[in-house]
Design a binder for these strands. Structure first.
Lengths: 228, 228
DNA sequence: GTAAATTCTGACAATATGTCAGTCAAACTC
DNA sequence: GAGTTTGACTGACATATTGTCAGAATTTAC
């Protein structure tokens, strides 16, 4: 028995067939949180209101999470693997780097569009807790490292101009994260098309040069729906 | 009698010579907050601890601000004018657009480096209060609008390729804001040089094309200290 | 010097959090 | 299937922070 989270594509599944109420309760809480955060900001999430949406009482929350931040952290882990997976073409595959980059960005936009309000909840929550903030920055740094690695490889091939990859990679990943939060974090969400346009322009022009940008933009809206 | 905020360049000045304890107390509180946020994250700011750093008692806080968010909002207003002022060359002046843009970005980096931890406090606080969040987004939108206006003007002159200016301007401003918070928001702060490098590369390559980037980068570290 | 106005504070009520001892139910033993 | 063990659950409590208010204290006006 696994529970699908509405409109998010994220599953929180307890042990598939095993009985034990514990794992079910944990998934129950996580699902209630995700559902709540889809229509309310993180600041309105109290443990009281959250547990009202489950079958157990408020103190039971503390059997599974030490506080709301730890709960968010658990949800964040699920999200990270989802995003990384979509971003893999450019990071790992061989082939036209500009095409692969665009494909990866499209996939990332797609995932983040689908969980925008939750993404916003994470960044809001990160500001209120040191541990979660470290977790969030840790995730961003893992993304940075992956991008840096790819940039260095392409610099060695002469595809990318030789500049300090660290600061540019950091900045580019920041663009994405902050755009997703701002554009998709509150409903009604912005349409993903223009966001992908803007992000693609920044990544491609600052890494590979603007001569590639125009060709990508024209086919953009046809491609965006197909990925992932 | 005006009080200078340590290492920030921001002044909170009560009525210059007038007596009246009210305005002095208000400035006293704002300065205490700024000082506190320089070395502690926003989440650790309680009204109790804040007012311990002033000469009056905790309930007095409510004579001046309805809560901590309103206090941050007041400090934000001071900051906005500071930043806008430095960014004016590219936005309003005539001349080589790439040079002016670089000059504006350098000034903005300079200001934001000087109040990095406070900037982080604002974004953290924005996540915990709807009104402050609206104020923060409002400020970002005013920046967006100014950039859009300039982009449209340069597109009309053929200096910038014709693309949807809204999404690109939004993305570019997001780069800056999020980089400032991440790089300068926690001590030890990153050095401003590489941050300016990365930001400049993104702005210049995505707006005017990468052929301008290299020339800017070489002179960068000599220029950065002189502006403003 | 006295009255009016403003600023300040001690004490209170409200809300959310985290803890814990004790209860309850499932599952295991024989 | 009765008794025991294990783990999940809950009511009640202690704590922390917030926001309010009536009255005290201080400044300003006359």
């Amino acid at each position: 028995m696994s529970v699908k989270l509405a409109a998010s594509g994220i599953f929180v599944k307890p042990e598939p067939t095993k009985i034990g109420r514990s794992e079910n309760t944990r998934a129950d809480i996580m699902n209630a949180a995700f559902r709540f955060l889809w229509s309310h900001p993180f600041r309105e999430l109290t443990i009281d209101k959250l547990m009202d949406q489950t079958s157990v009482s408020r103190p039971s929350f503390y059997n599974y999470f030490s506080d709301t931040h730890e709960l968010i952290e658990s949800l964040l882990e699920i999200l990270e693997s989802d995003i990384l997976q979509g971003a893999s073409p450019w990071l790992t595959d061989d082939g036209d780097p500009v095409a692969l980059l665009h494909q990866s960005l499209a996939a990332e936009v797609h995932v983040c569009y689908r969980c925008g309000p939750f993404l916003k909840a994470i960044t809001d929550a990160a500001g209120t807790d040191a541990r979660l903030e470290a977790g969030w920055y840790g995730m961003l740094e893992r993304f940075d490292d992956a991008v840096i690695e790819r940039v260095i490889a392409d610099q060695a091939l002469g595809l990318i101009e030789s500049f300090d990859p660290w600061s540019v990679a950091t900045a580019l990943n920041q663009v994405n994260a902050s755009m997703y939060v701002r554009a998709f974090g509150q409903r009604p969400r912005s349409r993903p098309g223009p966001v992908l346009d803007a992000i693609s322009r920044l990544w491609i022009s600052s890494l590979y040069g603007e001569r590639w940008v125009a060709s990508r933009m024209s086919t953009l809206h046809r491609e965006q729906g197909t990925s992932r």
